[in-house]
Design a protein around this nucleic acid. Sequence first.
DNA 1: CGTCTATTTGAATGTACTCAAAAGCGGTGG
DNA 2: CCACCGCTTTTGAGTACATTCAAATAGACG
Lengths: 194, 194
Amino acid sequence: MDFDLILRNVSKHITLNSRESDYFISLLEPKKAVRNEFLLHEGEVCRHSAFVTHGCLYGYTVDHKGGEHVISFAPADWWIADLYSVISGKPARMNIRAQQDSEVLLLSRTKQEELHIRVPKFERFFRIIIENSLVASQQRIIDNLSLTAEERFRDFCRRYPTLTASVPQKHIASYIGITPEFFSKMRSRMSRKR
Amino acid sequence: MDFDLILRNVSKHITLNSRESDYFISLLEPKKAVRNEFLLHEGEVCRHSAFVTHGCLYGYTVDHKGGEHVISFAPADWWIADLYSVISGKPARMNIRAQQDSEVLLLSRTKQEELHIRVPKFERFFRIIIENSLVASQQRIIDNLSLTAEERFRDFCRRYPTLTASVPQKHIASYIGITPEFFSKMRSRMSRKR
DNA sequence: CGTCTATTTGAATGTACTCAAAAGCGGTGG
DNA sequence: CCACCGCTTTTGAGTACATTCAAATAGACG
């Protein structure tokens, strides 16, 4: 069933009875996205969080010189959203796109708030999810400040072995904060040395 | 009173009656720290979140080459902790120190969990606090990837006008991700140009 | 005052970027 | 099934932004 993955994801942190599960599922809106389709364009208000059940999405921003910066990858079993926009109701700064044909479950902020009221355990669930994201986000800041590009790349490979093979190199380059050209040179240097 | 600031901080997101306020306050442990005192050493387990009532703390990591990287500043009315360590119970990667003589209110993770159970509203409070931190943290990643050092510095001045004057330049340099030497040159270049 | 740390200045260097162009690769249509 | 088109990756030359190391100067605190 399509909802198995998300229910297992939720049950890592809180325990639901079947009424609660059913209610939760009733709030979710399944959606398919084909390769390269946008789930969110910069400038729109982001009204949903997306849980990925199949495929992979990614979020990126565009700077004032037109450079694209990949902020996050969301393979199956991950959540993705422009949290800034979701929280504030202001236009998103991020674009969210499907890297491959993908399927997601959308949870609107409105329904999420209902959920918090009807099943307060979910307040806890999302607190924990976001705590973990914050830890990861802070670690990424530390890594960007203290590691070389090569070390950041090795780290990326260790942490996301699946992604390393399946996403275009230029997206990995962008994620670790270097240009695709430099990334290519770095890789050939790395393989030459060992 | 010493607890006014934290109660006003809490009331930005949830509403407490006086019994709840009193209970909350009873969980807090006031602590003074003199200039340069450590509240947390890297390697220790971080068991508390600290709310700053007076003064200013900062958190930094040390990389394998001995370089220090300021991760966050916490002036009055802010929270600070090594969240990674608090959540996981593993040794902290961060050091937390007082920049000036400061006063904080400590909330241990254990008591925080009690609090979540006895007054579930606090689950909501901390979710919101952490959501905001995550947004800020992601924005910092974006800025580090897309802005020049000079732009990051201007941004820093806009966002933390108070800190700009009161913390040593080398800490600002570290926070925005450059060396103190380059920071100094950059500043003189900036003032020469305008 | 004197000491210690923070800041400034300078010269040499390195890491990563830009721009340009070639090569590779995948998907699509004839 | 092959040829072509567009996009990704590679390669190279020149450059810029920021670093390192060393030393001088300035500030803060006891």
